[in-house]
Amino acid sequence: VYISKNIPSKKEHAAIKVHELPIKSEILWLCDRTFWGSAEDNTIITDVGIFYHESTFGDSFYWSITWEKLKRVEFIEGRDSFYFIYSEEDEDQNALLSRDSFLLNLSLEFVPHVLSALNSIASQIVDKAEILLDQLFDSTDIDEQINISHEIINNYPDSDSVYMAHLTLCYNYRIKEDWNNLL
C-alpha cells in the first residue's frame, strides 16, 4: 500500500495504463494487489474517485466510482463486503466490493477507519456540475451563461446538467442570432 508522494512511478504508470486514465493523472493512494509487484491488479484512489481492477486467468474485472456520485459507504459483515451507495432510489446502481478487494489483508478492526475516511471524503466532495448549473440559473448575463454552459459540457460531459447546458446554449445563440454556433 502506497500513499501520495511515496508511490513508485512504475506502479503508478502501470495503474494509470490499466484504468486508461489520462496520462497526467495523479494517483493519491494505491494498493498493489499482485504478488509480483506489477500493480496491474490494484485498488487506487484519485481525485476523481476509486478504481479497482482484478484479472483472473485472462479475465479482467473493472470497477470504479466517482466521488461526486458516491453518497456513502457501509460495511456488510455477513458478506464481508463494502457497500458503495450512490443512489438511494435505485439499489441496483449501488455496488459491493469485498473487504479483501478493497485493501489486501484488511483486518476487521480497521474497517471503521476505512469507512470513516471514505464517508468523510464523499461528504466533502460536492457535485461541481450541479454547482455550475446553479450559477447558470442565477446568471442574467447571456455571455456568462454561454461560458458556464460550455464549462459544464466540456468538463462534465457525463453529468445530468449537460442537457440543461445544451438547452441554455441553443437558446442564447438564438437570441444573439449567432446561427453558426447555434447549428
Binding site: I3, W29, L103, F110, A117
Partner: peptide, 16 residues
C-alpha cells in the same frame, strides 16, 4: 486532492 490526502493520513495504520 487535499481533502482526500488529509482524510487518508488520519489513518496511517491502514492507508500508509
Amino acid at each position: 486532492k487535499d481533502i482526500i490526502i488529509k482524510e487518508l493520513r488520519k489513518y496511517p495504520q491502514v492507508f500508509d
